[in-house]
Design a protein around this nucleic acid. Sequence first.
RNA 1: GCCGCGUUGGUCAAGGGGUUAAGACGCAUCCCUUUCACGGAUGAAUCACGGGUUCGAUUCCCGUACGCGGUACCA
Length: 511
Amino acid sequence: MNTEKRVRVRFAPSPTGGLHLGGVRTVLYNYLYAKKHGGDFILRIEDTDQTRFVPGAEEYIFDCLKWCGLNPDESVRNEGPYGPYRQSERKEKYRLYAEELIAEGHAYYAFDTPEELDEMRRKYKNDENPQPQYDNKVRMRMKNSLTLSGEDVHELIRSNTPYVIRIKMPENETVSFNDMIRGEVSFNTSLVDDKVLLKADGMPTYHLAVVVDDHLMKISHAFRGEEWLPSAPVHILLWKYLFGLDKMPHWAHFPLILGPNGKLSKRDGLKYGFPVFAMNWTDSKTGELTEGFKEKGFLPEAFINLLALLGWNDGTEQEVFSIDELIEKFSMGRVHSAGAKFDYEKAKWFNHEWIKKLDAGSLKERVVEVLEAKNVKVQDEKLLLKVIELVKDRCTLLTDFYEQSAYFFKTPENIDLSPIQPKWNDKKNLFFIELLRNFELENSWEAHQLENSFKEIASVNDLKPGEVMLPLRIMLVGGKFGPHVFDIAALLGKAETIQRVKATLKVLEGA
RNA sequence: GCCGCGUUGGUCAAGGGGUUAAGACGCAUCCCUUUCACGGAUGAAUCACGGGUUCGAUUCCCGUACGCGGUACCA
């Protein structure tokens, strides 16, 4: 195997819809590995299935990667020397290799129609073999260049009979390779089917394309999800036949990210109320919107962090990592081999940690976005920064900034009086009238000063400060939450504070 | 069915022949706080099972069970 070549890794999604958590983690591990080793991260679009073309899906993938900060070094948007980076545009390249395999006896033409394939499956299906494969046991009974005469084959091709090219899996050989995460993995070739390499429309299947492109693009390390492990022997053999095992990239198959039942799916998200895609995705056919982590209020820093730790850790107790720390500390050897169940509670914890960790300046723009989406206008940036600093500890998702800070920028529409109304009395009313008078005379308008005079007036009125602090909070905030009341009043300013107290007092008096 | 990969608290997990089997999330209780959080403390909760190997297995080997993945002219 090539050990000294420049590190080049690739993420090869098929642009068919939303970009899944597991997909982003695959991107991340590829990216981290590339950056750690000073290599290249390539994005290759696997769009060989024309029936599954989804408009906008490719752009969406770029948007997601951009949001995550995992931009490729080479892609359809940033071509390197190994383009094109879209497989549909490389169509012509694959046939040659498929023909080469046939010439060497490693593949064959197959003319079986879909109906004939169905029939074969029906015929051989039984309890012992519920899903018959097109393999060494049946290939000699099918319509292909192994069973037909050379003349017949030529004639069929000449008459434009649709055909595919299948790999001819050897019988009873052991194919093994060394997976960077799992160690040696081996397969008996008799149990693997004769996968289609080139489809009737002339497009390659994933199996051919991945090998050819990894070779042509000089990929040094091929990383992908565990769902690909069963077809690895096909890829290994293709490497052996076409380019030589010594040129083959190093492999690693990442553990799956599981949902409550099996491989995490879009459905799980819907069912259990958490996002599965990186960003919002709208199905163009059904119009169905699937919510993304971004829109749910996740920071990309946290999203990356949580994904990195789902299947990997650095062996210490550290859990919060910046992307630079991840690049520094990542190693394939510490990636788990077992699947990890996604835990949304823990995901939120990561986000909370990142909100607490980031300073107001770095949070600013994203908070403005949240507020403006809810029609809260922010004019005063200095105020905004102070507000963020004051409330960020109590925001788990970015969207929480709305509830936690909107009242600084506009008078609350709903004042929840239920916690104070039952205990409201003349004594408290008098207190607030006096407090208001005091506020009017106050010059410094600073939290400590406000608190001191508040307590003084309370004791003069024979009230415990606690009895009137909650009412003040509700008058200013609208509910039982938020930072220290006097910090709130200080930031609200004299005029606004007085106005809010007056307004609510009026309601309470009227009741 | 067959093939492959897995299996440490509910979840993420460290550890890997001798440990009181870390830590985190979540949960519970308490402290702090006259709100809600943050923070701090404490607690409940784990090596799937059976055989080996060994003086000694959670750790190594083999089975079994279970889970997941694959079994398409989809990736």
